[in-house]
C-alpha cells in the first residue's frame, strides 16, 4: 500500500529538521505544510497508509483528518514542544517532543509501518502463470469475451474474472492488447497463418 507522510508545523526549522532525520533513514516522500488548513487540499487521498505528524496544542483540521480516516489507514503523531499533555482535541496514536532523539523518531516509523502491514500480509507467489491461466490468456488474446471463455473452458464467468485478476497481478499487464502482446511473445498462441500484428 502506498504511504504518505505529512509534517504539519508552523516552524520551518522543525519541519525541515524532522524531514531530514526521517529521510536519512527511510526512503519516503514527505509533504511539509506550515498550516493545518492546507491539509484540506490533500483530503482526497485514498487507499494509503497516511502518517500525520501534527504540531500539538494548536487547532487541528479535524474535518480533513476525518475525511482522510474514512479512506485510509491514518496514524496520528502528536508533536509536542516540551511535555506531552493531552488535554483536549485530537487523540494521538503516538507522541514525539522536540527532544526526541533521531533513533526514537525512526523507531516510531518502524512501529507504524509494522502496524500498517500486519493486516495485509498476503503471500506473493513466484509470478509464474498456472496452466489454467495460460488457457485463459490465450483466449483473451484471440479476442474472446468472458462469457465465451467460460463456455470454452467449462468454468463460471466468476472464475474467468478471478483468473484475469490474477494474471494482471502477476504480469503487471491489464489491457487486452497488452495481454495479447505477452501471449504472442511467449508463444502461447499457435498462429502460423495469422499475422500477429493484426491481433494486437
Amino acid at each position: 500500500m502506498k504511504e504518505n507522510v505529512f509534517i504539519i508545523h508552523r516552524s520551518e526549522i522543525i519541519r525541515k529538521g524532522l524531514a531530514l532525520i526521517l529521510q536519512e533513514y527511510f526512503k519516503m516522500e514527505i509533504t511539509q505544510l506550515n498550516s493545518a488548513k492546507d491539509l484540506s487540499s490533500f483530503a482526497g487521498i485514498s487507499n494509503s497508509t497516511t502518517i500525520l505528524i501534527l504540531e500539538a496544542g494548536v487547532e487541528q483540521n479535524t474535518k480533513a483528518i476525518e475525511q482522510l480516516q474514512k479512506n485510509n489507514d491514518v496514524f496520528l503523531v502528536g508533536f509536542f514542544s516540551e511535555t506531552i499533555n493531552e488535554s483536549a482535541g485530537v487523540q494521538y496514536d503516538y507522541h514525539l517532543t522536540q527532544y526526541s532523539s533521531a533513533i526514537q523518531i525512526q523507531k516510531l516509523i518502524q512501529v507504524i509501518r509494522q502496524a500498517g502491514s500486519k493486516q495485509k500480509n498476503h503471500l506473493l507467489e513466484n509470478g509464474e502463470l498456472t496452466s489454467r491461466e495460460k488457457d485463459v490468456i490465450k483466449l483473451i488474446a484471440l479476442g474472446l469475451a468472458n462469457k465465451e471463455i467460460a463456455d470454452k473452458l467449462f468454468i463460471s464467468i466468476h472464475t474467468v474474472i478471478s483468473h484475469r485478476k490474477n494474471i494482471t497481478e502477476k504480469l503487471g499487464i491489464k489491457s487486452i492488447s497488452g495481454l495479447t502482446v505477452y501471449a504472442i511473445m511467449n508463444n502461447l498462441l499457435d498462429i502460423q497463418d495469422i499475422n500477429p500484428e493484426e491481433l494486437i
Binding site: G172, K174, S177, G178, M185, N186
Partner: peptide, 18 residues
C-alpha cells in the same frame, strides 16, 4: 483510465517481459 493502462502495460512489457 484506458490510455493510462496502456502506457503502464507498455512499460511493463518492456521492463518485465521482453
Amino acid at each position: 483510465t484506458n490510455v493510462e493502462v496502456k502506457l503502464s502495460d507498455l512499460k511493463s512489457l518492456i521492463i518485465r517481459h521482453m
